[in-house]
Structures are given as C-alpha cells and as structure tokens.
Design a protein around this nucleic acid. Structure first.
Ligand SMILES: [Mn+2]
Ligand SMILES: [Mn+2]
Ligand SMILES: [Mn+2]
Ligand SMILES: [Mn+2]
Lengths: 137, 137
DNA sequence: CGGCATCCGTAGCCATCGCTACAATTCACA
DNA sequence: TGTGAATTGTAGCGATGGCTACGGATGCCG
C-alpha cells in the first residue's frame, strides 16, 4: 500500500521535472532554428517566435545563460554553448520524431504540430525508441 | 513570412493553455480515484497522492473550487461538482487510452505510466481519436 | 556625425506551484 | 467528556513565467 503510493507519486515528480526542462528545450531549439534561418538570434526574434513579450524572453535568456546553455551580452545576439547546442540537437530530433510519429498514426499535420510541441517534453528515451521503431517499420 | 510566424507561435500558446489546465485535470482525476477507492477524499490524501505538501494541495483545492470543479468546506472532505466529475471522466479515459497506446507501441509499463502522466494533457481530441483507432485495429 | 527608430534592460506588478513554520480545528479514545 | 494526535488552514518565503511602463543602448540614414 505504502509502496504503491510512493511508486505512484513518482510519475508526478517526473512530470514536474519534465516541465522544469521544457522552457530550456524550447529555447535552445528556437535559437538554433533562428540562427540557422537568419544568421543570428535576437531577443525580439524569440519574442516573436513564442509570441511573448521581449521582457519574458530577456529574463529567461539570462537564466539559461546561468545554466550554461546560451551566451549573450547586453544588446548583443544570442548564441548556444556547446551544451546548449547538444540539447538543441536532441530536442530537434526528438521533436521531429514525435511529429512524424503523430502524422504516421493518422493525425493531420496542423494538429500534430500543435500536440507535438507539448508532448515532446514528456517523451522519454524508451518511448522515443518505440516511436522510431514504429516509423521505420 | 509574417503569416508563418503567427501560425507558428500558435502551437506554443496552445501548449501554455494545456499546462494551465493540467493541474485541474490531474486533481479532479485524483479526487475521483480516491473517492472511488476509499469513500472520501481529504487534503492529505491528495498530498500523498501527488507527493507535495498539504499546503500546496489546500491552495489548489481552493482555486479549483472557485472554478466550480470541486466542493469542500474547511476541515471537510472534497467532492467533485458536476463539471468536475465530467472533467474527471474525460481525463481518466484519455489517460487510459494514452497509457494503453504507449504500451501497444512497445513501451514498458512503468515508462508508459510515467510518460503518459505528462503526455495526456497535450493530446487533443484528434490525436486521441488516432490512438483509439490504433488500439482497436 | 547626429538624431531618431528600434531593440533591449529594469522596475514592478500578477498568477501558479513549490516549501517551512505555526495556528486552528476535528475526532477518537482514554 | 476532555485532551492530545492528526488534519487542515494561514503566513510568508522562493522560483518561474506572464505582463506594462519606462529608460538606456545601438545603429542606420539623412
Ligand atoms: Mn515544445
Ligand atoms: Mn492523469
Ligand atoms: Mn497528468
Ligand atoms: Mn507538459
């Protein structure tokens, strides 16, 4: 009984951890995409990308710099650290697999794009592997 | 271009909305489950269920009562409103389908239980329908 | 090369969900 | 029935991520 309760609550703790990482994952992925598309990434680019105010972006960028994922200086463009670039590559791959997977099971593209944006952060390595297997079969 | 950016940012707004609903969905589902299993639902039952402090639960319960999902009185058990019960039924169904679906594509049960706890909130009606189709085939 | 538009940072507000410490209520049982 | 243990509420803190308002920096172009 006690065992069951402890076991049970683990999944909620895990979900809370996934959400703590979510902003970081979306941001590094966005920075990589914006740099790839336009050469540099500015605070305002991210604000438009996520449809939030530049203030929100600015604060989050500062936090992520403290976590060694981004580098920037005041009024300067944003770039990824080695660690940030690594996270971006993983996040992008995972996102693409989740998106392709949803389309593969018959979800329309627009819905798949919306749902995958949230789902991706909760897809563990094992679930990702299962999706990959499904796609290659 | 502008069009693309607007279109694009929609999925992030949507994900933010999903997260705003997440606590409500998990709580009504938990209340229903606890009442079903033990006859009544107390603040402490929820605190143990989610592995958070009773203070966190107490505040959230108050908020959800304001949203007409729960009913309670100080030092009294918690029950669901009609609207809360409806949300609980939907959340439970959706959760079960997501869980079964993950297992069906080859994810081990424990991982499926963890991942489905987060994924469920981002699964739209269309994606849910696709998962159902997959399960019945 | 100076001024102005654009971009970015800071101040300060709100909501949500974590927490500890302490106060109040309830209820079981001695 | 009184009291102490268990339960629940309140006060007050932190982190995160939204916002508006405003001030400072940058850089383009006349
Ligand atoms: Mn995302
Ligand atoms: Mn659930
Ligand atoms: Mn959940
Ligand atoms: Mn989520």
């Amino acid at each position: 009984m006690q065992e069951d309760k402890k076991q049970n609550s683990v999944r909620f703790s895990r979900t809370r951890k996934h959400h703590a990482n979510e902003t970081a994952e979306d941001y590094v992925e966005a920075v990589a995409e914006i740099i790839d598309a336009s050469g540099e990434c500015r605070v305002l680019d991210l604000a438009k990308y996520f449809d939030v105010s530049h203030v929100t972006v600015s604060r989050i960028v500062k936090r992520l710099q403290g976590e060694d994922l981004l580098v920037t200086r005041p009024y300067r463009p944003i770039s990824l650290t080695k660690q940030g670039a690594k996270m971006a590559r993983y996040a992008k791959q995972r996102h693409e697999i989740v998106l392709d997977f949803l389309v593969a099971i018959g979800v329309d593209t627009q819905t798949a794009e919306i749902d995958s944006e949230g789902i991706e952060h909760h897809v563990s390595a094992k679930t990702l592997a299962a999706m990959k297997r499904f796609l290659t079969k």
